[in-house]
Design a protein around this nucleic acid. Structure first.
Lengths: 107, 107
DNA sequence: CTGACGCATCAACGAAAGTTGATGATAACC
DNA sequence: GGTTATCATCAACTTTCGTTGATGCGTCAG
C-alpha cells in the first residue's frame, strides 16, 4: 500500500480555499482546455481586469496555476501537479474502512 | 469516454468552501474513524462548544456531514456520498487531455 | 419538580475576503 | 518619442466569515 502523505491540513485548507469561489472555478474551467491570457478570461467571465488579476493571484499563490509572460500578455495555465494533489487529498478525506463503532460519548 | 457530469460550479464552490477552514478539516479528520458527538470534538480540537456548532453547521449545510440525535447528545458522521462527490469533482477539474495549444490571445 | 448537562442559536465584534476604480509599469505600435 | 494596450498593484469600501459569550431549549438524574 502507498504510505499516506502527511496530509497537512494547512495546505489542504489553502487549496480548498482557492477553489471555494465560483469565479475562480470558472477560471479553472477555462484553463482546462489550455492556457489563457488575462484578456481572454475577462471576456469569458465578463469581469473586470482588476478582479481577474486578484483571483489569478489567489490561484497562483495556492500553486494551482502558473503564469508565463510573453510580450505584453500574461498566460496562465493549470498546474497538473497541484490538481493531482487535490484529487489525492479528496481521497484521503474519505472515511476509514474500519469504523470504531457508535462509541460511548464523552469517554 | 464518460460524459462529464454537469459540474455545477455553485455546488463545487460550496463543497470547497466547507473544507477551506483548518478547524473544519480537523473535524472531518476526526469523523473519518467514525461518528462523534460534539463534546468529543470540543475535546479533540480544544475549541468552544459554540464554535464547534458553527463549523458543524457549515459542514452539514454543505452536505458533508449528517447528524443523529440520541438523548441529549448529537452524533455527527461523514456523508460518504458527498465525499465521493468531492473526489469526483477534483478529478473533473484536471486539464483536458487534448490541449488547444498556446492559442492566439484575445481572439 | 428542580437542577445539571449537551447542544443550538443569537448578538456583537474583529478579521479576512471580494469588488471597484485609479495609478503605475512594461511592451508593442506609429 | 509619444501613444496605446496588457497587466499588476494600491486604496477604499462592502460583504462575508470566524470567534466569543450569553441565552434558550430539550433531556437525563436526583
Amino acid at each position: 500500500m502507498a504510505t499516506t502523505t502527511p496530509l497537512s491540513l494547512e495546505r489542504a485548507a489553502r487549496l480548498f480555499h482557492a477553489l471555494s469561489d465560483e469565479k475562480r472555478l470558472r477560471i479553472v474551467e477555462q484553463l482546462r482546455s489550455g492556457e489563457r491570457c488575462v484578456c481572454d478570461l475577462t471576456g469569458a467571465l465578463s469581469a473586470g481586469q482588476s478582479l481577474l488579476s486578484f483571483h489569478l493571484k489567489t490561484l497562483k499563490e495556492a500553486g494551482l496555476v502558473t503564469d508565463r509572460r510573453q510580450g505584453r500578455w500574461a498566460y496562465y495555465s493549470l498546474n497538473p501537479q497541484a490538481m493531482a494533489e487535490l484529487e489525492e487529498l479528496a481521497g484521503a478525506l474519505r472515511a476509514d474502512a474500519e469504523q470504531s463503532g457508535p462509541a460511548h460519548c464523552c469517554g
